[in-house]
Nucleic acid binder design. Structure first.
Lengths: 230, 230
DNA sequence: GTGACTTTGTGAACGCGTGCACGCGGCCCG
DNA sequence: CGGGCCGCGTGCACGCGTTCACAAAGTCAC
């Protein structure tokens, strides 16, 4: 697949990728993947249509990764796929732990979308003794007290919190303590973490409430197209 | 990101609430609810700490709703709860349909957070004949062909897409056709809708990929605090 | 090889959101 | 009743992100 990057060059060397761009890279990635078996190159215009954004934005976003396009032609799909994957760190495998084996936790454990992108669920964690020892989605449930050992042995750097809101902060503390550096929080609670830990939050109820606002306001959402995490 | 917001956004209501503010109102709402049984008033400083944001931002956000605070004292919790609820349209009941009764759809159907905020799941919809007729989370599964009648009779204005990506666009078309005006899309696909329909997108895999970027980048996420959807 | 055409990459302007700083207004204490 | 204090509301400046517009650069036909 595509030209090998010379050993030395890494993403992030020098140019800084804006947050807004980072949030769109996965969208481009999926769009590119969808057409990768049919088209060899894409123009910014076409990619923009697939991703639901502006063509100029696509070009500017991609320019932060380097000059990977050919004027008059567009971008080579395979090469771009590789470059974006590399930038997002998807060329390696990320072991992920899910804390909280309730409805949501189980659904996430079964969700194909994670493993499909290089995020491998390697552990399910819960505090309920009744659940510990059972097997969910092919993974045995570990007790949360064993978190430090688990994180260490499996090399877990990313974890998902799918617990009730009441215990989310405690879980976050334990995760940070155990060495986890990135947390995806599904619990409806604001959690505080040390500065070296990154948290992203997905609150399902909040999303509906935002929809409710625009619905009630009757006016449509100012930004057409989908408003995603940003 | 998109066509013009169109001129004068809502006749009658003078003040326009910025998108960024709307996205934070649910956070304030939850924080206020949490302390409502212990405290009668909150300062912007305190509310800011609870919501994980800046105090000035809280004041500015709330000022868009009107002058509901008392100088030297703060905001009366109960009153503010009511005002925010009203602004978000939560004083009424929103019937919601979930399309796609897979892992995620079922988890969402069982999720307490929705009903807790006035969003009542009134229908589960699927295209699989084997699922139609069964009961999930207390709701019978309806066939998607019956969507128009269902939307009409139950007065559904908001729907959730929890289907595989391949059929998401088709489902969105049917929803829009049936009269649904707001869609929360969990399928990993960009969907196009008529201009009078609002779409919000939650992509679980994308969230992990964004975390992956900052993780690999090693640097922590530039923005302190949690970056939320919206 | 030349000219016409296509599409990238980017400089510049604009608009939104954030955070600071401070005035104004209401409360409380003496 | 008056002075002091506290916290809201907001004008202002700054920075990020978006979009336009265009020159540069490459392709393709002949």
């Amino acid at each position: 697949m595509s030209p090998r990057p010379s050993a030395g060059d890494r993403p992030g060397s020098g140019r800084r990728v804006p947050d807004a761009t980072v949030a769109r890279l996965p969208i481009y990635l999926r769009a590119l993947f969808d057409v990768s078996d049919r088209e060899r190159t894409v123009s910014s215009e076409r990619l923009a249509a697939l991703a639901g954004v502006n063509a100029a934005k696509v070009r500017k976003d991609l320019s932060y990764l380097g000059s990977y396009g050919t004027r008059g032609v567009g971008y080579e799909v395979e090469y771009l796929l590789f470059q974006i994957s590399r930038e997002l760190g998807l060329t390696r495998d990320w072991p992920v732990a899910i804390v909280g084996v309730g409805n949501l936790g189980q659904a996430l454990a079964n969700y194909d979308g994670f493993s499909a992108r290089g995020f491998r669920i390697v552990a399910l964690v819960d505090a309920d003794p009744a659940k510990v020892g059972t097997v969910v989605a092919g993974h045995p449930v570990t007790h949360i007290d064993d978190l430090p050992a688990l994180v260490e042995s499996a090399g877990i750097a990313i974890a998902v919190i799918a617990t009730p809101a009441e215990v989310a902060q405690d879980v976050a503390d334990r995760l940070a303590e155990a060495g986890v550096r990135s947390i995806l929080n599904f619990a409806p609670a604001v959690i505080a973490v040390p500065p070296d830990v990154t948290v992203r939050k997905v609150d399902l109820a909040v999303e509906l409430q935002i929809l409710g606002f625009y619905q009630q306001r009757d006016g449509t959402h100012p930004g057409v197209g989908q408003k995603a995490s940003g």
